[in-house]
Design a protein around this nucleic acid. Structure first.
Length: 765
DNA sequence: CTATGTAAACAAC
DNA sequence: GTTGTTTACATAG
């Protein structure tokens, strides 16, 4: 209202229609129209079958071998086309049965199999088809929830103002996917509830079949209507502890398609947080819009006809958070609303929070269940994750460090870094961003919200391209121009306007004192400012530079950032092995050597602010985007509080694909190929195996990125060895972690791991 | 300083 | 009027 002299000059915006949207571009309304009933039944048929057939047994086609060196650990070779979800279920059950005395850790690796069978998205297939495939996938998985789900009637009995989160409404739809098998929450429930291993299947089925049930399970009101009611009522009048950004994410993630119209977002929020409906000033909507525009993680997609805009979450930033995920009863008997929990936590010092969070992920479910959820706001960078940590570890053949250690690392991070523990290892941002690009080549998209859970490692080259270019694209772009169009136009793929960038650098900025990050920022920034400077008053200059809150990018443009797969020596000096994928790219770039965050802030740097520049930093995040830059730019994966998956590559080890735990927990595994043939790795740049990843005392150490050396450390992978991705399922911790396995190749040599195992048998080719 | 919230001015529909 | 973008300003940590 007050016409401030400072009023920015607003340039015209051009809206570009999404290029190819998904073939079936449905409006949210349409989605909503779909009957929820259908969903359940159709849900994850495959997994179900498997589960049923195998109930407590392993599905056929799976090979299990005791790990030669790790006690209570078995290596499970899974056909590509197998239903991972069900396998995990079974293994979990098995592990639980065995308890600590039996096999309780399972290293899952792909043993090939018919790829064709795998419903998972093919890495290579990109383009418009993707969208279709995605759709199909969706269909298979279940009916669409519909944005309207949001409006699903509250459970009878639920207090009016009371928030009946969980699966209610929009989430229901999304829940199906999120919460069903794909959502490993059930694991927790399983253990906490004391379900027998055999009941797992049942559990699963229940979830699949009845999303409402889910809500019941999770929803406090259902469990304890009376007790909670008071608190809940209060909550109605109290502002939820979630930031707008978080709420938007909850809303969007509550839908199956992970997209929502502005209106639906409003509705969802009002439905789930009565405060906004009854108490908040109308301005909250403005804030919502503001947040949507401000944060890069929110991407607007326009339907082909250009009439409908959907807001989505950038795949690389999406952690698939849902309201129910942040909610966790402190104790079985007295559930609390997420808000309360968070509020409580907020009061708590961060350190403590982190600790708790960590514990939560590390401890047995029983204990975990009591952990409070993370905070949404500032401290909430730590996002609650149902499924624990995901780290990538490289198991070396010549294990200097016993595998057990490695495994233990996963479960005992705490011990390692008493200081800071990363609670939720976020999935690597890079993954998604990179994956698509690499595979698609020109087409960037390949999003796989639904289907892509685990993408195969990307070819080095593609990655390279991405990274390289971004780095160079420091072209000044008119700042006012937020270039969405380029991407849109350029990308035929379904994924519309994603401003894709490969990720990298989280660490840069945070990681080290390295000048590089800043440099890039500044470089980028200035160009961006050009326009503004011209147009705007000088007085603002300064401010803009430092404070401008333009769209907050997910990732800083730093291209150099390498992704780490695993770390090297213990506090090594920052030397780390980079992900193969990144290697090339990096080499091209001038990379100053970075030290890891660890050094900086201690042994371990919390992803939180330090590590991940978060979204909100405006000025820094300024990245001029040229049309190309959008494409090429490395993910702007910058921040996220609630947001994005912050794991920068290095931090937890990066996974080339989007397979992070998050994916595991949130996506339907059955549709996802577990991993690709190790061959990819072979073909791609080898890691420097020389460095012993395990030498480092703890996982945290693993993440040291080695940006510096221009020369790729591409030493070489011994001919007889191969790296492949795998998952480690630790039933003791109920954790599922992604790992990199270094295995010796068949026939080539003897297996260092042990005579007992012939790894080659796991490797198809 | 950062992250967030709020208000507001505009622009494009 | 709605939606989307971008500033400005305020505030808490």
């Amino acid at each position: 209202m007050k016409t401030s002299p400072h009023r920015p000059l607003i340039l015209k915006r051009r809206r570009l229609p999404l290029p190819v949207q998904n073939a079936p571009v449905e409006t949210s309304e349409e989605d909503s129209k779909k009957p929820p009933a259908q969903k359940e039944p159709s849900q994850a048929p495959a997994s179900k079958e498997v589960a049923e057939s195998s109930s407590c047994k392993f599905p056929a086609g799976i090979k299990i071998i005791n790990h030669p060196t790790m006690p209570n650990t078995q290596v499970v070779a899974i056909p590509n086309n197998a239903d991972i979800q069900s396998i995990i279920t079974v293994l979990t059950a098995k592990g639980k049965e065995s308890g600590s005395s039996g096999p309780n850790k399972f290293i899952l690796i792909s043993c090939g199999g018919a790829p064709a069978c795998s419903p998972g998205p093919q890495p290579q297939a990109q383009n418009s088809n993707d969208s279709k495939s995605t759709e199909l996938l969706t269909e298979k998985l279940g009916p669409k929830p519909a944005a309207k789900d949001v409006n699903v009637p509250r459970p009878p009995g639920a207090p009016p103002g009371h928030r009946w989160e969980s699966c209610a409404g929009g989430e229901a739809a999304g829940c199906i996917l999120d919460s069903s098998l794909s959502n490993i929450q059930w694991l927790g429930k399983m253990s906490s509830d004391g379900l027998s291993s055999c009941s797992i299947k049942q559990e699963v089925e229940e979830k699949e079949n009845c999303y409402l049930e889910q809500s019941q399970v999770k929803t406090p009101q259902v469990e304890e209507p009376l007790g909670a009611s008071t608190a809940w009522q209060d909550s109605v009048s109290e502002r939820p502890p979630y930031s707008y950004m978080a709420m938007i994410q909850f809303a969007i993630n509550s839908t199956e398609k992970k997209r929502m119209t502005l209106k639906d977002i409003y509705t969802w929020i009002e439905d789930h947080f009565p405060y906004f409906k009854h108490i908040a000033k109308p301005g909250w909507k403005n804030s919502i819009r503001h947040n949507l525009s401000l944060h890069d993680m929110f991407v607007r997609e326009t339907s082909p006809n250009g009439k409908v805009s959907f807001w989505t979450i950038h795949p690389s930033a999406n952690r698939f958070l849902t309201l129910d995920q942040v909610f966790k009863p402190l104790d079985p008997g007295s559930p609390q609303s997420p808000e309360h929990l968070e509020s409580q936590q907020q009061k708590r010092p961060n350190a403590e929070l982190r600790r708790n969070a960590t514990i939560k992920t590390e401890f047995p479910l029983g204990a975990r269940r009591k952990m409070k959820p993370l905070l949404p706001r500032v401290n909430s960078y730590l996002v609650p994750i149902q499924f624990p940590v995901n780290q990538s570890l490289v198991l070396q053949p010549t294990v200097k460090v016993p595998l057990p250690l490695a495994a233990s690392l996963m479960s005992s991070e705490v011990a390692c870094h008493s200081k800071r523990v990363r609670i939720a290892p976020k999935v690597l941002l890079a993954d998604e961003g990179i994956a698509p690009l690499s595979a698609a080549g020109p087409v960037k998209e390949k999003r796989s919200l639904l289907g892509t859970g685990l993408l195969p490692l990307l070819p080095v080259q593609s990655i390279k391209e991405e990274e390289t270019q971004p780095g160079e694209d420091k072209l000044p772009l008119g700042r006012p121009f937020k270039v969405e169009s380029p991407p849109l136009e350029e990308w035929p793929s379904p994924c519309p306007s994603f401003k894709e960038e490969s990720s990298h650098s989280w660490e840069d900025s945070s990681c080290s004192p390295t000048p590089r990050p800043k440099k890039s920022y500044s470089e980028l920034k200035s160009p961006a400012r050009c326009v503004s400077e011209m147009l705007v008053i000088k007085r603002r200059e300064r401010r803009e530079i430092s404070r401008s809150r333009r769209k907050q990018h997910l990732l800083p443009p730093c291209v150099d950032e390498p992704e780490l797969v695993f770390s090297e020596g213990p506090s090594t000096s920052g030397q780390a092995v980079e992900h193969p994928v990144c290697l090339l790219a990096e080499s091209a770039e001038p990379a100053p050597s970075l030290n890891c965050p660890q050094e900086e802030g201690g042994p371990f740097k919390t992803p939180i602010k330090e590590m991940l520049p978060i979204s909100s930093t405006p000025s820094k995040s300024l990245v001029p985007k040229t049309p190309e830059s959008w494409r090429l730019t490395p993910a702007k994966v910058r921040g996220l509080d609630f947001s994005p998956v912050q794991t920068p590559q290095g931090t937890f080890g990066t996974l080339p694909d989007s397979l992070g735990l998050m994916d595991v927990s949130t996506m339907p595994l059955q549709s996802i190929p577990l991993f690709d043939s190790p061959r990819e790795l072979l073909n791609s740049e080898p890691f420097d195996l020389a460095a012993d990843p395990f030498s480092s005392s703890c996982p945290s150490d693993l993440e040291v990125p080695k940006l510096g050396s221009p020369e790729p450390q591409v030493p070489s992978l011994s001919a007889n060895r191969s790296l492949t991705e795998g998952l480690v399922l630790d039933t003791m911790n109920d954790s599922l972690s992604k790992i990199l396995l270094d295995i010796s190749f068949p026939g080539l040599e003897e297996d260092p791991l042990g005579p007992d195992i012939n790894w080659s048998q796991f490797i198809p080719e």
